[in-house]
């Protein structure tokens, strides 16, 4: 009797499994056929040239707000005194592809998003992290992601805070109002936060021993570990407290610009030019290559 039931169950499983396996095979065949027909990833070229953008702050010109204080994305070249960086180049490329001149307005981070709201510039943010508040904001619009990033910390090796748990009771620095530092303050119980006006001041505080660690984003942390003169005294603290998608920010009066930038960003992903721009200033392009880990 038991044997009969076993045979029936096995037959049932086999009967169900055959169509499922068959469907999977067909789907795989379909995907392969589609992929073969499409060929290599390629940019979408059927967009308006020039793109009619009617609400720019200055007609014919893309006005961009940037901090110039977040290497390797945006910084002032010490040799030339010129604004440079991977996102500065990205903004230039967007302007060029939209057939616009470009003008950069350099100001501190606390003024960037209010500046967009106040119609001071068209485009801004050197990869601003997505948050529920930002995505839902009517004061500015966020583009599709340009990078994936995460909240980590850089600690002095001699401070003995190589884990998040060890930071309790320690002075931890970060940039005032920045999402990474606010995340760290929210999630790390018992830390003594020290709020600096910018990243360079935070790193000075770390160098001077005024704080044991600085909470920041992973891309910045890796850049500092790659280039900073004090890199050998520092260690990366993880795992990430939070993983973020990052994008650009658009003037809320310009939904047409948002569509245009999203189309171009998709193209830059397809033809690998976004990866190339990041790779020009950084040893790692993981922030772009791993975008598919969050669905992009």
């Amino acid at each position: 009797m038991l044997l009969d039931k076993t045979i029936v169950a096995a037959a049932l499983v086999a009967a169900l499994a055959v169509p499922v396996a068959h469907a999977q095979d067909k789907a795989a065949d379909g995907l392969a056929a589609f992929a073969e027909a499409l060929g290599d990833p390629q940019p979408f070229e059927s967009y308006p040239k020039p793109w009619p953008l009617n609400n720019l702050v200055t007609p014919g010109k893309l006005t961009v707000g940037t901090t110039g204080q977040a290497p390797p994305r945006t910084f002032v070249d010490p040799a030339s005194g010129e604004l440079t960086g991977s996102y500065v180049d990205l903004f230039r490329k967007i302007a060029e592809d939209l057939g616009l001149e470009i003008e950069f307005v350099k100001l501190d981070w606390p003024g960037i998003l209010p500046g967009l709201t106040a119609n001071r510039f068209d485009l801004a943010c050197d990869g601003a992290s997505w948050s529920a508040q930002r995505l839902g904001s009517t004061d500015f619009l966020m583009t599709s992601p340009t990078a994936v990033n995460a909240t980590v910390a850089l600690a002095r090796k001699d401070a003995g805070v190589s884990s998040w748990e060890a930071m309790s009771g320690e002075k931890i620095g970060g940039v005032r109002g920045e999402i990474y530092f606010e995340t760290a303050k929210e999630r790390l119980a018992g830390i003594d936060p020290v709020e600096y006006p910018g990243m360079s001041e935070s790193l000075l505080g770390l160098q001077n021993g005024q704080v044991a660690a600085v909470a920041l984003n992973l891309a910045n942390a890796l850049d500092i570990l790659d280039k900073s003169p004090m890199a050998d005294q520092l260690e990366l603290v993880g795992p990430p407290l939070q993983v973020f998608a990052q994008g650009l920010c658009v003037n809320p009066r310009q939904p047409d610009l948002l569509v245009a930038v999203n189309v171009l960003l998709g193209n830059y992903r397809a033809d690998d030019s976004l990866k190339a721009l990041i790779g020009e200033y950084s040893t790692s392009t993981a922030e772009v290559e791993l975008l598919n880990s969050i669905g992009y």
């Binding site: 981070w109 606390p110 508040q133 005032r176 109002g177 600096y196 006006p197 001041e201």
Partner: peptide
């Protein structure tokens, strides 16, 4: 003093603006 990490009135206003974007 807000520029040397003191959380004074200006610093707290700037922090709130950075988070809420409501200058």
């Amino acid at each position: 003093a807000s520029l040397v990490a003191v959380n004074d009135l200006t610093a707290e206003a700037v922090r709130a603006i950075s988070i809420t974007y409501r200058p």
